[in-house]
Design a protein around this nucleic acid. Structure first.
Lengths: 208, 208
DNA sequence: ACCTGAACACCGTTCAAGT
DNA sequence: ACCTGAACACCGTTCAAGT
């Protein structure tokens, strides 16, 4: 069983693999040790306990997150492109991002995106508190949308399912709407529509 | 230790209390049994295993969720009131709602809210697929916002924290913005602003 | 019909001991 | 400096046995 020295990096890499492929619950100290061919307790020597291990993974994730490059002509287009990029990052690393979230490093992870949004807010003429609100509204919107999406994807075969619900229920004599609501939402389209509507509403309105 | 017969309802009530107060992780079969003064195994007789127990709790939650009463004159006002009510429900039962989510009963739980939103969409002149998109955009927005809020509240003392981040970073010569982003977001205000902006954007725009 | 303890296969963590 | 096994206090679940 026992092979020579095993580095902290090896342990972290193996743990990251486990989390990426099977989620954080699959990361047990015993399984990790078994995969590395060591005794459980040697993991403790290298990285400390499970919490410390997760902390290290989170550090890694935050550091690895790529740059955000806004694309498009108008501030609206550029903000939408930032939102899209953000959504992709979040969707591509769901488990790791969830860990980052739980450990309170979300703000640091989103700093580049925030800075990009600030630039666009300024370009659109918003400043100060209004600009800050703009940045946060977009960020919450994107993160929230992805969280909802993820929850829906993970949810195994909705028990009654929107389908039967909206087949049985009255939809105010609007059969096209009932049909639409009985299908699963088209996540990409819904996301684009929502972000665009939010951005327009924020840039246009000033009613309180 | 052993007292007389214990009903399924007693077990469910005790389990619900545990989840409400300490979250789903605190609901272990052994702790539940200890609280009831029975052997662990008698829980299995009454409700089956842990999964079945959680399923039962979820059923309860879905059934107990109150009606939604839209308030206000204009469709916009009424939609915002629905969003507010929805947010309150979600915030008041965070653990139970999370369980509902995980078990794929979200659609059924949100049916009353969806129906209220459909009415307002119709009142605002939207029909068919557009109305469906409106309903879902608002629903995703509300649920997403609450999920993000919850994650932020649970997150223990952000490691670097938005504060230092935005103190150190350039904010494009906009010190008021840097100050605003260095404070934690005012969730209520941010929610209201976002929903209103989204609704306006959805009701006004038709650009693709 | 209802409750029991014993047992199994898992956890994370600590500790004293080896080299 | 690095790795080990034994032990502790937890899990969820099954099962044969009691009344």
């Amino acid at each position: 069983m026992a092979r020579g020295a095993r580095s902290r990096e090896e342990v972290l890499a193996a743990a990251a693999e486990l989390v990426k492929r099977q989620g954080p619950d699959a990361l047990t100290m015993r399984r990790l040790a078994a995969g590395l061919g060591t005794a459980v307790t040697s993991i403790y020597w290298h990285v400390g306990g499970r919490e410390a291990l997760l902390d290290a993974l989170v550090e890694r994730t935050v550091a690895d997150l790529g740059e955000i490059r806004p694309r498009g002509r108008t501030p609206e287009q550029r903000v939408v492109s930032v939102a899209r990029a953000l959504r992709r990052q979040l969707r591509d690393h769901p488990h790791l991002v969830a860990l980052v979230h739980e450990r309170g490093l979300t703000d640091r992870m989103f700093l580049p995106a925030q800075q990009a949004l600030v630039r666009e807010a300024h370009a659109a003429g918003l400043r100060g508190g209004r600009a800050a609100e703009f940045v946060r509204a977009v960020q919450f919107q994107v993160v929230g949308h992805v969280l909802v999406e993820r929850n829906r994807e993970r949810a195994p075969a909705q028990h009654p399912g929107g389908e039967e619900l909206w087949r049985a229920e009255a939809a105010g004599d609007d059969p096209a709407l009932a049909r639409a609501l009985s299908r699963p939402p088209a996540a990409d389209r819904l996301f684009a529509t929502s972000v665009r509507a939010l951005v327009r509403g924020l840039l246009a309105g000033d009613g309180g």
